[in-house]
Amino acid sequence: MAFAVSIPRIRSLPIEKLAFGGPMSTRIAIFNHKGGTGKTVSAYNIGWKLTEHGNKVLLVDGDSQVNLTALALGFDVFDKYYEDDSTKSKNIKDGVSPVLEGKPSALEPFDCPSAANNPNLFVLPGHAELAAYEGQISLAQETGGTLSVMKNLPGALQAFIGMIEAQHEIDYTLIDLNPGLGAINQNLFIASDAFIVPTNPDPFSLMAVGTLGNHLVRWMNWKDANFHKFEDADYPLHASRPVFLGTLNSRFNKHASKAARKFDERIAQIDEQVEQRLVPTLQAAGMTAKPECYQRAFDEWKDKLAADNKGLHALARIPDFQGLIHTANLADLPIFKLDDTALKADNIQGIVKEKAVRNIESFDVIYEAIASKIEMLASNDCRI
């Protein structure tokens, strides 16, 4: 497909090559090329739970819809952030613009805002025009470093994220990708150390899981073939091999109905597709953790999670948030942190409140399981 793209002219910058990010930061991409799988809400809730384990966490909003930024900052603060002259340029697009637009200046990190009510959950805000760089990055990756004026482009996003990680001493970075197969997603994916695949109980999610492995391996093959071509760039590629941590079976309707049984069947089919197609494809490319680690993660939490969480590579099955999502948005809190004050503010009382409290406790266990599994599976001990 032909497209018009301006080729930025990048001057040779007198900057010191840095080990961007460093060993403290573990980057995790949350990605499925099928939309509507709950990736943004999952990133926010998982990130928050990881901070409860004593970690500093960075949420990177790589989706031009900017939903993660709005969710984490709170919708009132979100509007002000992009209107205020002191903060509106502190976002992922403007952060990498010196390289992507060929400006005679180096990348520079900035202080990221913290999520509402959580000083250890940082947000690298997204931008609605990030997709405008799709053409430049695509062309730079297609030419594989043969054009010197474009040599810094493929490594710019990862380098900038690394600078932010170093500035805030980040332990885990969660990158929310858009549901597509473009160059920006490829770029962010190959800049990650691990990845999670959110799914939804519908036929399109089932199809997506069946083909996802081929796309991810193709992206990784590009990195393998071209990594050395960018080693002398001011911003080289991230030296990593993304490892599959597991799936999230999200938005499962627990109501006892024919529809719920259908959802249950669909999730079982997704689990089977993961075992028969996705994992073998990724395993052959060296993009999985040690088999015994998946088994240990499953065994350690199988008695604490619902009995219908049967997939070996499923981090957890996440029920529909239903009305609690409204309460959580009002309180600027994740589902599992809702308390009496938050419930009262949303006029949740009586029997409805009793049910809500039980659901909140259940969500706390689910996200505790997810965070604990992530910490184990993403560790060096579980890397092959």
Rank of each mutant, 00 (worst) to 15 (best):
A140F: 04
K290F: 05
V243G: 03
E165C: 05
Q167T: 04
P104I: 11
H168Y: 06
Q141V: 06
G182K: 10
N91S: 09
D264T: 11
P125W: 09
A115R: 04
A225M: 11
Y133H: 14
V96S: 09
K151V: 11
S192D: 11
Y44P: 00
E275V: 03
N118C: 11
S105R: 15
L330K: 15
A256N: 07
A331D: 03
N380K: 14
M376Q: 14
G62A: 13
G311M: 06
F31H: 06
T288S: 12
F160T: 02
Q349F: 12
Q167G: 00
S25R: 01
N329V: 12
S42N: 09
T211M: 09
Q283K: 14
L330E: 14
E16P: 01
G286I: 08
Q322E: 13
V217C: 04
T281M: 14
V217L: 03
N178A: 15
I366S: 00
T51H: 04
D299C: 08
P319E: 05
Y235W: 13
S138L: 09
S114D: 08
L312W: 07
L315M: 14
L50I: 05
A297F: 05
M163E: 07
I46E: 00
N185M: 12
K344G: 02
I318D: 02
P98R: 08
F336Y: 14
N253E: 09
N118Y: 06
E265T: 10
L245Q: 04
R317P: 02
S114A: 14
N117H: 10
C293F: 12
F336I: 04
I348W: 01
R261A: 10
P113A: 08
H255R: 07
D303W: 06
F263C: 04
G180H: 10
T143S: 11
I46Q: 00
I374W: 01
D234Q: 15
S89E: 13
L68C: 08
N178E: 13
M1K: 14
Q295M: 13
I196A: 11
T173L: 03
N214T: 10
G311Y: 03
K39C: 01
L343F: 05
P98Y: 08
T26S: 09
P8F: 01
L282P: 00
E142G: 05
K304S: 14
S42V: 03
Y133S: 15
N67D: 12
Q276Y: 11
L100T: 12
N185G: 13
W222P: 02
Q283C: 05
D364G: 13
G144W: 03
L50C: 04
D264A: 15
D339P: 00
Q167M: 10
L333E: 14
A72C: 08
S148A: 14
S372V: 06
E129N: 11
L13Y: 01
P242R: 03
L315C: 12
G54S: 13
K34F: 02
A70W: 02
V274R: 01
S64Y: 07
G38V: 00
E169N: 13
G36K: 01
I10F: 01
S205L: 08
P109S: 13
K262W: 06
K223H: 05
K310N: 13
F75L: 07
S12P: 03
Q141R: 14
V5L: 02
A183V: 12
P291S: 07
